[in-house]
């Protein structure tokens, strides 16, 4: 495990906790795409099925359980406890436009045609695009709360750090996983435009609003 990997995982965890803290403290999930959160729960649920079959390490197990739990608590907050504050009029991304291509691609490009492997592949492809409903929602409303932008920043930073991790692993272990790498590159690209706005606006104390 290298420093990029650890920082990537911590960045991912921080993003998830920022989102939960925002909802908990403001008692509101305004500006958060429930659809993106459902996709992330689906990503974790299909990828971490190996919790039942293999033990990799205590770290691996604990992190997976935390991600899964937080993800389901987030969904409960949006569609349960805080549903009155959920901005469903602006959360209009059509999920079938993501799910159908992602299912198709996981059947076409995978390492092995067995259920666990197909579900893992599906989760990797889905993660790459799962943030799109959230970004679409921001472009619908034209703005995002600063705390939401911190969430997005750390969520994007996580996969960018994983790219550094994969480069490191390739050079030190000759290990590479082309499905994860290509999807990770695509995933990171989706955040680039946002990173630019975050650095030029949010870090200078301005609210993120689109022209």
């Amino acid at each position: 495990m290298n420093v990029f990997r650890i920082l990537g995982d911590l960045s991912h965890l921080l993003a998830i906790l920022i989102l939960l803290a925002k909802m908990w403290r403001s008692k509101s999930c305004a500006g958060i795409s429930g659809k993106s959160q459902v996709l992330f729960a689906l990503v974790f649920s299909t990828r971490y099925l190996d919790l039942f079959f293999v033990f990799i390490s205590l770290y691996n197990l604990v992190m997976k359980v935390i991600y899964l739990l937080c993800s389901y608590i987030t969904i409960y907050m949006i569609y349960g406890k805080l549903r009155k504050t959920y901005d469903r009029e602006n959360d209009t991304f059509r999920l079938e436009f993501l799910l159908i291509p992602v299912i198709g691609l996981s059947f076409l490009e995978n390492y092995d045609f067995i259920p666990t492997e197909l579900l893992w592949t599906f989760s990797i492809y889905l993660e790459a695009v799962a943030i799109l409903p959230q970004l679409f929602m921001i472009s619908n409303t034209g703005e995002a709360e600063t705390i939401t932008t911190h969430y997005l920043f750390f969520l994007g930073l996580y996969r960018a750090l994983y790219l550094a991790n994969w480069i490191w692993r390739y050079h030190t272990e000759k290990f590479y996983d082309q499905i994860a790498i290509i999807s990770g590159v695509v995933q990171t690209i989706f955040y680039c435009d946002f990173f630019y706005l975050y650095i030029t606006k949010v870090l200078k104390g301005k609210k993120l609003s689109l022209p």
Binding site: R5, D9, H12, D50, V54, I56, S57, N60, M63, K64, Y67, Y111, D112, T116, E117, W120, Y162, N165, D177, A180
Partner: peptide, 10 residues
């Protein structure tokens, strides 16, 4: 096989 089915990354 093993390298592909055991994924240590999150």
């Amino acid at each position: 096989e093993d390298e592909k089915t055991i994924k240590d990354e999150l």
